[in-house]
Amino acid sequence: MACKWVRFAYRFLPLPAWRAFLLDRHIDHCPSCQAEALDDAAIRFLGTTAAALESEPALPSFPAGPRPSPWRRVLRLNYAYGLFLAAVAVGVVVVVSRLAPSAHPPQGIVTVMEYEYDARVFAVLEARIGDEPARPVVFKPGQPGLTIVWFEKAEKLN
């Protein structure tokens, strides 16, 4: 019974390496299991060997051309490989285009109204970056006489 279970487990169950090793040992040393399997000497009678084929005519020499260079083999693409490369290339282009800063930033338009009584005072009437509304951001770094005004897209500020 144990041998039958061992043979069943060995043939049909996925086994971890250590258990397969134990079953190997069992099968190699168990007379009952060995009796169920044909031994090497008997199997050799079923096939042929090089010695038995001595009288067989030699294989014809093949018209081998020059051996292809390793580079040529590396560059030989099949369809699957080509499609894979194309997909990777498209992916790289998409990722890079999203991450890299645009070479041509969108045009910005700022309309201001200057007050006649004081040229240093102005009011921002409208600001747009590309097609989107923008808001002025005022930054005073604490240095006397220095105020930095820049514009950002409105959605960025929310």
Partner: peptide, 19 residues
């Protein structure tokens, strides 16, 4: 290697039975 051992054992069993 496990698969190889199983193939070998199966083959031996089948051949024994056929013989």
């Amino acid at each position: 290697e496990n698969t190889v051992r199983v193939h070998l054992f199966n083959a031996r069993l089948k051949l024994k039975k056929e013989v």
